[in-house]
Design a protein around this nucleic acid. Structure first.
Length: 763
DNA sequence: TGGTTGATACTATAGACAGCATGTC
DNA sequence: CTATAGTATCAACCA
């Protein structure tokens, strides 16, 4: 369908009833303050309610989600199920939370993301599931029966199909779902893209495009003290000075907030530091107090101190913060919440925030338009699409009547380039990345292992249904596919022969969601491992896998890890440059760095020391720990097949990595509320395991833990019969009487996830 | 001689998904 | 292929 000219001109007066929204759903929407539909919603909802597929390309926060929810609700009402695909875990939580509003209608909503999943029996009863594309891909691979009743699928941020790493998974997942459920309603939500029609065409969907925003956006370029907006208006900024303080100060003076995007972590901290005096000078006494409260919250987010929390704690009292991936998740969430509640006036962020959860500000300032690309070894321009996503964060509904997005230009030439290149040009075209060899390796194996594709003809048919096949010729793929197939056969993941069929090892690899190369390497490591294999050798093996990308080596570290390599060489299960599957020596040394980092972690070295020693953030450590424990699980499952006797030590190591604990802590750490820090304190107080703790006097445990309430709770848990006073739901949580709130989150190994209830914000 | 200044070379660079099994503190 | 800021190194220079 052609874009509707003049869509923007439609009055935003279409009532919910006129659009055909069922009264009970409309009632819930009204409770949330939705009275009228925005133009894109008004255009999309009628076809949605008829079960049509829709491709909706418009800016963030223009009400796309509501459209998507209606499709899921429609399917659920028709006795089918609805699936909402998200690109990020944090987005999944946001969506599941919003959808749970409709639980009042008797709908069961669930969330399936990496760190929070549902057991199968609960999944079966769900009407609506929110999942990452990878999780959905996993359901397909395992042939989950939940998909049999699927009536609608929503693909959020569908332009990510162009992402070389994760785009293919989204594309393949959508293709497989549509093949499995002919007539499936697809709702694809996208940022503004250059080829919306091509995508809509592929999905057999109505194409609706709009630039509508609930809060109007003015785009502009700052240069020499004034902003030149695309609507050709100008605005001079009064107090002279450097661009950033000037742009920040003026918006705060007018009662707004500033969100600054920069291209490196270091810059996010430095710019925040530099802006701090400016921001602080603008705070009222009340605001200063609120900001100080945030600073205290940050320190309390984790049991273990982190460098990031320390640096944030210095800035937060001044009403400003930075945000990047070196922060742990709880730290990021605290900063985000403080900004949302307007306790912070300015936030300096790397692109973490641009693609993530919705965090608008009256003025968005984009300082950098280039970014270092490791692939190229140099700076490259940030894609228009991403700049537009950053700018799209400008303008808070209810607080701002207009949002301002400002790019900073240093020269007149740059000013012109920005106006033409970023602010006027249409976004990049979405292209398929399915032809990449790593993507084909993963997905060819998965297609065959799950039985969806059994021979050459079916393979060709499958690719005809992908966006790749829709836009490009299958024959272009033949050569790579042939090479990938040879690889899979050679390494015994697929059986040789004209028919395509997977070995049990291949099926296992696919279901464990491992890169086939990782699986082959892990199997090889298992076959080589001696009986008493040391943890470091196993850690080095998982670190040498493509599923655990190598870390950067700092200056001097090359030498450090070269000597470590020499030291350990005889015990290493995988070596550099093994038939093209492992890295060259230099990159291999970087994988040893990962192993060394993990080794420190399981030796219970404090987080601050580890991050200092390796020059990484606590968030990076956390990410490596997560990846490694996931891979160790895979290794353990492979051991069941290839080296049964290694299963137990590997399981123990996985637990150690999960908790960051030495071997002797593995018993205590099973207790809820006890992680590496408290566990060690208990051991030092003379309670080496749960058995010893069971008969322990309350006051000694309380002293060891520094929290009487937690001690009481743990003893109650250990002695279910005895009436130590189990916690009732009405009671205050235990830490209300202890001095520091125990931290969900990193450093403790335990997966933590706020319930949907906790996530529900005010309407 | 000791210290400062300045030219030059060098270094480093965003982010984050997946298994399993259950109600976090 | 379209970078840049911070830092280390060292020579030239000044008091």
């Amino acid at each position: 369908m052609v874009p509707r000219p003049g869509l923007e001109d439609l009055p935003p007066s279409d009532s919910l009833a006129v659009a055909g929204i069922p009264p009970d759903i409309a009632a819930i929407l009204r409770e949330d303050g939705v009275e009228r539909l925005y133009p894109p919603q008004a255009a999309a909802i009628p076809p949605i309610l008829r079960g049509r597929s829709v491709f909706l390309a418009c800016p963030t926060a223009s009400g796309k989600s509501l459209v998507a929810y209606l499709a899921l609700l429609r399917a659920a009402r028709a006795g089918q199920t609805g699936l909402y695909l998200v690109p990020l875990r944090a987005l999944g939580q946001e969506k599941a939370d919003e959808l749970s509003r409709f639980a009042a209608l008797g709908l069961r909503v669930g969330l399936s993301i990496g760190d929070f999943d549902l057991p199968n029996d609960k999944l079966d009863r769900l009407d609506i599931l929110v999942a990452t594309s990878e999780k959905a891909d996993g359901l397909l691979r395992r042939g989950s029966p939940w998909l049999d009743r699927l009536g609608a699928v929503v693909a959020d941020e569908v332009h990510l199909i162009r992402d070389p790493d994760r785009g293919p998974t989204l594309e393949v997942t959508l293709t497989r779902l549509r093949r499995r459920r002919p007539g499936l309603q697809v709702v694809a939500l996208s940022a503004t893209v250059g080829n919306a029609h091509e995508l809509a065409d592929w999905l057999d969907a109505e194409c609706i495009q709009s630039e509508f925003r609930p809060v109007p956006l003015r785009w502009g370029v700052y240069h020499e003290g004034r902003i030149l907006f695309t609507d050709l208006t100008r605005r001079s900024l009064e107090p002279p000075g450097e661009p950033l303080p000037r742009l920040t100060r003026t918006v705060i003076e007018e009662g707004g907030q500033a969100l600054v995007f920069v291209n490196t972590r270091k810059a996010s901290e430095q710019v925040a530091q530099a802006l701090a005096p400016t921001v602080r000078a603008l705070l009222s006494p009340d605001e200063l107090r609120a900001a100080a409260r945030t600073a205290r919250e940050i320190v309390a987010t984790s049991e273990e101190e982190t460098e990031g929390a320390r640096r944030l704690a210095e800035l937060l009292p001044m009403g400003i913060a930075f945000h990047n991936a070196s922060l742990t998740n709880p730290e990021r969430r605290t900063v985000e919440a403080a900004f949302r509640e307007r306790r912070l006036k300015a936030l300096v962020a790397t692109p973490t925030l641009a693609a993530g959860i919705n965090l608008p500000a009256r003025r968005v300032i984009v300082r950098d338009t280039t970014r270092y690309e490791d692939r190229l070894g140099m700076q490259a321009p940030i894609p228009v699409l991403e700049i537009q996503q950053m700018c799209g964060r400008a303008g808070r509904p209810r607080y701002d009547t207009v949002g301002e997005a400002v790019l900073i230009a240093r020269t007149p030439e740059e000013e012109e380039r920005y106006l033409d290149g970023y602010l006027s040009a249409r976004s990049e075209t979405v292209v398929s990345r399915l032809a990449g060899e790593p993507a084909l390796r993963m997905h060819l194996l998965a297609l065959v292992a799950s039985g969806e594709v059994g021979d050459e003809t079916e393979l060709e048919q499958f690719f005809a249904g992908t966006f790749y096949g829709h836009t490009l010729a299958y024959s272009e793929l033949r050569f790579t596919l042939e090479r990938v197939r040879r690889f899979l056969e050679e390494h015994r993941l697929l059986l040789p022969g004209p028919k395509l069929s997977a070995t049990p090892f291949g099926v296992m690899t696919s279901e464990l969601y491992l890169d086939p190369i990782s699986a082959v390497l892990l199997r090889r490591a298992l076959e080589r491992a001696p009986l008493g294999v040391r943890p470091f050798a196993l850690l080095a093996a998982v670190a040498a896998t493509p599923d655990l990308p190598p870390m950067f080596l700092r200056r001097g570290e090359e030498r450090t890890f070269l000597s470590r390599f020499a030291e350990e060489e005889s015990e290493l299960l995988l070596k550099p440059e093994e038939d093209g599957l492992t890295a060259d020596l230099e990159t291999f040394l970087a994988t040893l760095k990962t192993a060394a980092l993990l080794e420190r972690w399981i030796e219970e070295v404090p987080i601050v020391e580890i991050t200092q020693e390796f020059g990484v953030g606590a968030g990076d450590l956390r990410a490596k720990v997560e990846d490694a424990s996931w891979l160790l699980f895979g290794l353990s499952r492979l051991a069941v097949r290839f080296r049964r006797e290694l299963g137990r030590p590997i399981d123990a190591l996985e637990l150690r990595v999960q908790y960051g604990a030495a071997e002797d802590l593995l018993d205590l750490v099973r207790l809820p509320g006890i992680g590496r820090v408290r566990g060690r304190r208990l051991v030092e107080a003379g309670f080496p395991d749960r058995e010893a703790l069971r008969e322990a006097p309350l006051d000694r445990v309380a002293r060891a833990l520094g929290s009487p309430a937690l001690a009481k709770q743990i003893l109650a848990e250990l002695n279910p019969g005895r009436s130590t006073g189990t916690r009732r739901s009405g009671d205050p949580p235990p830490e209300s009487s202890g001095e520091s709130p125990p931290p969900p989150g990193p450093g403790r190994g335990r997966r933590s996830h706020p319930t949907l209830e906790e996530f529900r914000g005010p309407p």
